[in-house]
Design a protein around this nucleic acid. Structure first.
Lengths: 193, 193
DNA sequence: ATGTGCATGTAACTGGTTACATGATTCG
DNA sequence: CGAATCATGTAACCAGTTACATGCACAT
């Protein structure tokens, strides 16, 4: 039950810290990452919004439109911000899947600098361990093994390498300028390839 | 409803095509990829095994041990192999999350060469599109944006780049030697970094 | 002594998906 | 003229998690 159950609720809540938006807007935003972590369906999105409203973590502004369902713009409340803070500061299990990691990453803005660094470092050591494990199995099986096995292994290594590179780079940038906002934290990747 | 619902069942079934194993063994194997796609809990693993057994897709060999719960070694049946084939050949939605992609990758051994290539190419075009989208938002927001947003974006780009590189490399290797097993499909990644 | 790995399982819960309902507008 | 996008929602269903129960062996 837990501390790290990212039910859609907190995810939405985080989006709303940026700016007020409708359920549909939330969906649109999350679509950008659907290939990575998938995006929740309306069937879970709208009920989640209801729940947040009911708990007083968000407010709505209903904008009626003739003959169409009214747009509903949700804004986060002060209580909502507090709830989000409280949730994000919960410690995470040491070994979380990529999806969870990314999700927490998005909420990282509401996290104190030090906690963020710790989170990233935890992930780095985790990935390093898995990387070693993958490499061993990769070399130990050479030839004769199942195609699917090989593919998945190769893919896993590729992603692990990329993630480690990113973590190192980000960690460096984060320590060198732990104050001034987020100045080009992705310059390399944008131009790469 | 879902052609591509990867309930644990087929995942297990695939593992069993490699060699007979127990529920615990399955868990151990999947742990290797937990950081990527997560691994199912025993609470879903054991019931899944039951179901497979009930449907005649697997058989058990019970190995009693004194004072301990007996080990149960499951083997896939011919019916099981057929069911797996039937399942994997179902077309996938064009835009699946990384988790789904990896899962299907593992089962790719049971897929005809051409279908595999098509699957990879579909993914490639998908990622390319998302990559472009991410880059645009990345450049369009420079400075002033939320830290979490930046981090997630940078991370996404890093993974997207890695995935594309891997896809291209794999696709080439796959076409050059579409016959002889899987000769070092991951030589680069193993030594990288 | 305490915890981790081995090894199996069950029951309650819950978070989410799928499918449905409604309806205008714009694009190809 | 059909498909996709905009825009909201509900209800049935189900796949999975969490927490529990049991118990030995080995390491710290």
């Amino acid at each position: 039950m837990g501390a790290s159950t990212i039910s859609v609720r907190y995810f939405i809540l985080n989006l709303l810290t940026q700016q007020p938006m409708s359920g549909y807007d939330v969906k649109r935003f999350l679509k950008r990452f659907s290939w990575l972590i998938g995006s929740p369906s309306f069937g879970s999105l709208y009920p989640a919004l209801r729940a947040l409203l009911h708990d007083g973590l968000v407010t709505v502004e209903v904008i009626p439109r003739e003959d169409k369902p009214p747009r509903k713009i949700y804004s986060i409340t002060e209580t909502g911000r507090e709830a989000l803070q409280e949730w994000i500061r919960q410690p995470v299990a040491p070994d979380v899947p990529l999806k969870t990691f990314v999700m927490r990453l998005m909420v990282a803005g509401n996290l104190p600098h030090a906690a963020l660094v710790e989170h990233l470092e935890q992930r780095r050591s985790q990935i390093t361990a898995h990387q070693i494990d993958l490499r061993q199995t990769a070399t130990a099986m050479d030839d004769g093994a199942d195609l699917g096995q090989c593919l998945a292994l190769g893919y896993g290594l590729a992603v692990a390498n990329a993630e480690l590179t990113w973590l190192d780079r980000t960690l460096v940038q984060l320590s060198s300028q732990q104050n001034g906002a987020a100045s080009h934290l992705n310059s390399e990747s944008v131009s790469a390839r």
